[in-house]
Design a protein around this nucleic acid. Structure first.
Lengths: 183, 183
DNA sequence: ATTTATGGAGACAAGTTTGTCTACCTTTGC
DNA sequence: GCAAAGGTAGACAAACTTGTCTCCATAAAT
């Protein structure tokens, strides 16, 4: 990708994630990145296009991080342990590449762009489906019900960590999941 | 409360919940409610004050509905059953007073108003705490860990129902929770 | 060396936004 | 009948939004 385009995408993602997509104007992105308006509209058709680019970028970073976090799991128990420990590290700002925790960028984007951009919510759905698939691909024994629970608890933990500032939300899931697996 | 003030609050809540707080301007609320701008600023200091009023109103409606939904529960198992069945009815638009499902108004508001209104996020936290307390008050046998799981699964179900359009998200929680309770 | 592409700075247009203010009307109480 | 209170309608201000366009500078390729 072009250097300026990449810079714009990263800067926009930073600001969108920190302050909300609708609260951040194009001019703010330009000022923060030091790029000219002409250049932005040279690379992006509209702000919406830029938003989609930030979603794609975040998606890649997030999936890469998650893939690495689950890489060493060999059993379903491992998977659960690695996943929720990784979430806890994310919530507590121990994952630099995900930047300072501010909830799930995709949940936030979906909430912000309702009735404004159908493409955004579609991409958010896609992201969630991809994450689910990645988790599923690390299951030794396929258990659809367990997969459902893992995904629901993951979403709940992210939301609780963000809205209720419960940074230990993910840790609370572990004993329950573990005790329910060895049966 | 004053008649016009009430009308403004309800109209604003409707529009905010359906289309997003930041996407709905004051003028739209005025047009939809048929109230004059002067009257709005007679009752509300600013748009932020109106937003808080919609949060308070939604909070009351939601808690009233939840209280009624859980009223007949006498055991922890009942509680879980009543709660997640109620959520399923909400997701599937079978609860008129909660209006057409569009996710959790408080999660959405928190996502939209980040770095814009500290009061909004504080109220959202308060709402989540109140809901948790209501659920806790219906527990026959107090089990903090179970309460955590219920609340996390509830948040996860709401998010999944909204973002991933999984309207059966809440139902998926039931077997798991039930099997984990009788041990 | 000159053409071509790219970017910087920012003026500008057209439309938003929130919030104020004026002028008038309607209702209610005395 | 009349005064006070509160609502309506909407003009207006000031600031913001996205997106276009011009002018100029720089750098790379032929």
């Amino acid at each position: 990708m072009n250097e300026k385009k990449h810079l714009l995408t990263m800067t926009a993602l930073d600001l969108f994630y920190k302050n909300g997509i609708n609260s951040v104007g194009i001019n703010e992105v330009l000022k923060a990145s030091g790029v000219a308006k002409k250049t932005l509209y040279n690379h992006f058709v509209s702000k919406d296009t830029l938003i989609i680019a930030t979603l794609e970028y975040r998606h890649n970073v997030f999936l890469h991080w998650l893939k690495q976090s689950l890489a060493n799991s060999t059993t379903n128990e491992d998977l659960v342990r690695y996943l929720f420990n990784a979430l806890t590290r994310w919530f507590n700002n121990e994952v630099p590449e995900l930047t300072s925790f501010n909830g799930c960028f995709f949940i936030n984007a979906a909430a912000e762009c309702v009735g404004q951009s159908e493409e955004v919510i579609t991409y958010c759905r896609f992201h969630k489906a991809q994450v689910r698939q990645l988790i599923a691909s690390h299951m030794q024994i396929i258990d659809e019900q367990l997969l459902d629970m893992i995904c629901l608890l993951k979403e709940g933990a992210i939301t609780s960590a963000y809205v209720s500032q419960d940074l230990q939300a993910a840790q609370k899931c572990l004993p329950w999941l573990m005790s329910n697996m060895k049966k």
